[in-house]
Design a protein around this nucleic acid. Structure first.
Lengths: 263, 263
DNA sequence: TTGACAACATACTGGGTAGTATGTTCCCTC
DNA sequence: GAGGGAACATACTACCCAGTATGTTGTCAA
């Protein structure tokens, strides 16, 4: 139903590359899908992204206005439009940075140097890292959830839809890390699930849950997050049908930054 | 940050009851929090709710316009504003109906007549019913998720915020059914979790996951939904630390409408 | 048949917002 | 020290959309 909606297709002309007189060299659009830290966090653009992430989290993409973001920055629209071509582009940049934060947190444990590592330990470390970065970077994570939703609806122009597909693919790669880790467990006969994709979704659903209800309670936020993460990971691993390796939990609790990878 | 936002508080005058010259007797606002089927599904209002649920699902509350809903109905705004006072009220009605669908699906298994029933069987039936109604009534379920999110942001006027609080409380009652069922398992020493609220959230997170990815694949949709639900419930129960009762699954699979409550 | 009212459709208004066009300031370079 | 451009702020426009005011049609009762 509603095949055309209101605006059929914005900017019918000058589509495709549209690279004429860009105001700044920000948001490099070279076709490098692997590029992660696109924007320097300490730059002015980084501050814009942080403010935008909070606004998108609080009001949602559609309801948050550019003026809201500018107000959160103690600035005006001019500053934002100097760095980002449109509201959608700003959203994409926030999404990209959110995915970069996730990859930076989890990827080290996904492809660790210790090839002889137990598959269960690897999945456990990845899960804890994921659960923690979720709580530590809440605004960005909420934006990620919105981005997935936007993909199914209408994402303005064709060029932007293409960019969104890239971002969704980025998320697909991220989830694939977990799917592969779970599949490794199945291959090692350490686990018996018939539907790995579904199991992966349920696994991540447990860990992602905190995005919608977590708010810091205790003083020691870092420890609180670790404890919550351990509970969630315990639930998720049990859901898969395996007993959680408490040794990993203890190692993580004692060293909050990077748990020792000793067996 | 951003303490005031754009519109400080819509409709500063005539707040509170604002009951003057209602166009129709629709949307009875008597203070009955227990009322579930507020709107007759086969009426004109029911058709509006269905269309609104699809639009809110597709575009989100903020991005979906009243004209979009009207277009989906092959009608105009007049029809909608004749039955609902505002866009927010329409959203609330959709939310209310979504909760009614959930209660109607799960409540029969929550307070069944068989008091001697095993706690695990009860939770299992509730979980399956919840997972199935989620897939069967997708548009409404997506609206429910949005409603929870709206509660944390700004919900227009003070009177509407009050109504939203009612709806959130309705959802709280719904989740409490599951929390109580899990707490019963703990009390019966059939389960050992230290954090029941967190376990409940993880439990529901697994079941709710399908809202974001489920799309009918096979021809026999009802059977497909049952099979998916069983897989999800298996994961969720294992996450709690209990072995799923396959007897219940088999009974549900053989009789899709209402599983026999025999021992 | 004639009110009268429900159930819409049509036409219009006001406010909010994305995006643009144009200034202004500061810094850096030559 | 002059010029030039990056990094903003200011001012403005065009448009979308929630909400309203009013017109039209059908139906049902008296």
């Amino acid at each position: 139903m509603s095949p055309a909606r209101s605006s059929p297709e914005r900017v019918p002309a000058r589509d495709g590359q549209m690279g004429s007189a860009e105001p700044a060299d920000a948001h490099a659009d070279d076709g490098t899908p692997q590029a992660l830290h696109v924007v320097d966090p300490d730059s002015s653009q980084g501050a814009i992204l942080d403010a935008a992430a909070e606004c998108f989290r609080d009001y949602g993409f559609a309801a948050a206005s550019i003026d809201d973001v500018a107000r959160a920055l103690n600035a005006t629209k001019g500053r934002i439009y100097h760095h980002f071509r449109s509201k959608t582009d700003l959203f994409f940049a926030v999404y990209r940075r959110g995915m970069a934060l996730n990859f930076a947190a989890v990827e080290p444990y996904s492809a660790g140097p210790s090839a002889g590592e137990k598959p269960l330990d690897r999945l456990t470390r990845m899960a804890i890292a994921h659960a923690i970065v979720l709580m530590a970077q809440m605004p960005y994570q909420r934006v990620l959830a919105q981005g997935v939703h936007m993909h199914q609806t209408g994402a303005t122009t064709a060029a932007q839809r293409e960019t969104l597909a890239d971002l969704i693919q980025l998320r697909g790669r991220y989830e694939k890390m977990f799917r592969d880790a779970i599949a490794d467990l199945v291959a090692a006969h350490a686990l018996d699930v018939d539907d790995v994709p579904l199991a992966t979704r349920s696994f991540l659903a447990v860990l992602n849950g905190s995005v919608y209800w977590y708010a810091p309670q205790q003083d020691d936020v870092a420890r609180e997050q670790i404890e919550l993460a351990i509970k969630q990971v315990t639930f998720a691993l049990q859901g898969l049908g395996v007993n959680p390796p408490h040794k990993i939990f203890d190692a993580w609790s004692s060293d909050q930054t990077s748990p020792n990878t000793s067996d």
